[in-house]
Simulated scan of single mutants.
Amino acid sequence: QARVRELKLFNVETLAVMDAKHLAFPDNFFDAVVAQYVITAVPDPEATLDDFIRVLKPGGELILVNHIGAESGPRRIFELAFAPIARRLGWRPEFPWARLANWAAKHGGVTLAERRPTPPLGHFSLIRYRKG
Results as ranks from 00 to 15, higher is better:
Q1P: 11
R3V: 14
E6T: 12
L7S: 09
K8C: 08
F10L: 13
F10V: 12
F10E: 15
N11K: 08
V12K: 04
E13F: 02
E13C: 06
E13T: 11
L15R: 08
V17K: 10
D19S: 12
D19A: 13
H22L: 11
H22E: 13
L23K: 04
L23M: 15
L23Y: 03
A24S: 14
F25M: 09
F25I: 00
P26L: 04
D27E: 14
N28D: 15
F29Q: 11
F29K: 10
F29L: 07
F29H: 15
D31K: 09
D31S: 14
D31L: 08
A32P: 01
V34G: 04
A35R: 03
A35E: 03
Q36P: 00
Y37M: 13
Y37W: 12
Y37L: 11
Y37G: 05
I39F: 03
I39T: 15
I39K: 03
I39L: 13
T40H: 10
A41E: 08
A41W: 00
P43G: 07
D44P: 00
T48I: 02
L49D: 00
D50Q: 09
D50G: 06
D51M: 04
K57N: 06
G59Y: 02
G60A: 08
E61D: 14
E61K: 14
L62A: 05
L62F: 05
V65F: 07
N66E: 15
H67W: 05
H67R: 14
H67S: 08
I68G: 00
A70D: 03
E71M: 05
S72K: 15
R75I: 07
I77E: 11
I77C: 01
F78R: 04
E79G: 06
E79Q: 15
P84L: 03
A86G: 12
R87H: 11
R87K: 14
R88A: 10
L89W: 10
L89H: 09
W91I: 01
P93R: 06
F95D: 01
A98N: 12
A98T: 15
R99S: 10
R99H: 12
L100D: 01
L100V: 01
A101G: 04
A101F: 05
W103I: 06
W103F: 14
A104H: 02
A104R: 10
A105T: 14
K106W: 06
K106E: 09
H107I: 01
H107S: 08
H107T: 05
V110N: 03
V110I: 15
T111G: 12
L112F: 00
A113C: 04
E114D: 14
R115Y: 04
R116F: 00
R116G: 07
P117A: 14
T118P: 00
P120N: 06
L121W: 15
G122C: 09
H123V: 14
S125L: 04
I127D: 02
I127K: 02
R128T: 15
R130F: 01
K131A: 02
G132D: 13
